[in-house]
């Protein structure tokens, strides 16, 4: 019963402060797909996420990004969010004096302008999602991200994703800085929340979280392009061989002109 949605990125180039980071990224994410985006530091994974979400610091110099055929790049960040795109931040931002519950409700109601923002439904789902993440109800009264531990921040990002039920979620390093138990909790929750109506992309350096998320496909980004794509076993291969192995392969394929 879920509709099929498509996020299509074609030849995307993006720069920050005049420095080109993305050098032609092409990928398609469809509803129901769960993919991992891996790659070494500085390869452009986060830039791809922020550029798609519309961060003003990133300038798109070429290419396009379409959500169900609509030009994402012409939309403001909030329009992109309302079109169904969610970005889970690597470093979530603190907002003093705004309780998590108030913030979640504010965001939820923004998403449901037109249809009815249903507070009963909202509350029931929230309780369920808190349970998934092993968070207590009292957590909702705390100011958004303020004084949160690293793990609490990452869980809160996933909680926001769950509340907003996006068509496409891009999670930027939901595992960084977490201990093993927290990685498991976040990973399992992301897998649980993933559904046929949603496309999910998880950005990570390590395959550890992927054991819980179990992606359908793995992309590897190197130097601003997707250098390699494969199945779940690619992540394990990377863990063994390191990113240098991909870089060497990429250099070879560029030299041979393929």
């Amino acid at each position: 019963m879920s509709e099929e949605h498509t996020l299509a990125v074609k030849g995307l180039h993006a720069s920050v402060a005049g420095k080109e980071i993305l050098k032609g990224v092409t990928l398609t994410l469809k509803s129901g797909e769960l993919v991992a985006m891996m790659g070494p530091n500085g390869s452009g994974k986060s830039t791809l996420a922020y550029a798609l979400a519309g961060h003003p610091k990133y300038t798109i110099t070429a290419g396009e990004a379409l959500l169900d055929g609509k030009n994402l790049l012409a939309m403001s960040p909030d329009q992109r969010a309302r079109a169904g795109l969610f970005l889970g931040f690597q470093y979530p931002v603190e907002v003093s004096g705004v309780s998590l519950s108030k913030f979640l409700w504010t965001a939820y109601s923004q998403m449901h302008v037109g249809d009815e923002a249903d507070s009963d439904r909202f509350g029931a789902d929230l309780t369920k999602h808190l349970g998934y993440l092993g968070l207590d109800n009292s957590f909702l009264k705390r100011p958004l991200n303020e004084g949160f531990s690293g793990g609490e921040k990452k869980r809160t990002e996933v909680l926001q994703m769950a509340t907003l039920a996006p068509r496409f979620a891009i999670l930027d390093e939901p595992d960084s800085g977490l201990d093993i138990d927290a990685i498991r909790s976040v990973g399992e929750t992301v897998a649980k929340l993933h559904n046929p109506g949603m496309g999910t992309m998880v950005i990570t350096h390590y395959q550890r979280i992927l054991k819980f998320i179990r992606p359908d496909r793995v992309h590897v980004m190197v130097d601003g392009v997707i250098a390699l794509s494969g199945g779940r076993d690619l992540a394990e291969e990377l863990e063994r061989k390191g990113y240098d192995w991909v870089k060497v392969g990429l250099a070879a394929s560029q030299a041979s002109g393929t």
Partner: peptide, 23 residues
């Protein structure tokens, strides 16, 4: 940007920040 990426319009994002400041 963080608040806008959750679907809040810019003015709503600023209002939320101001109200939080005055909470």
């Amino acid at each position: 940007f963080y608040l806008m990426s959750r679907g809040l319009r810019e003015s709503d994002a600023i209002h939320l920040i101001l109200m939080g400041f005055l909470a």
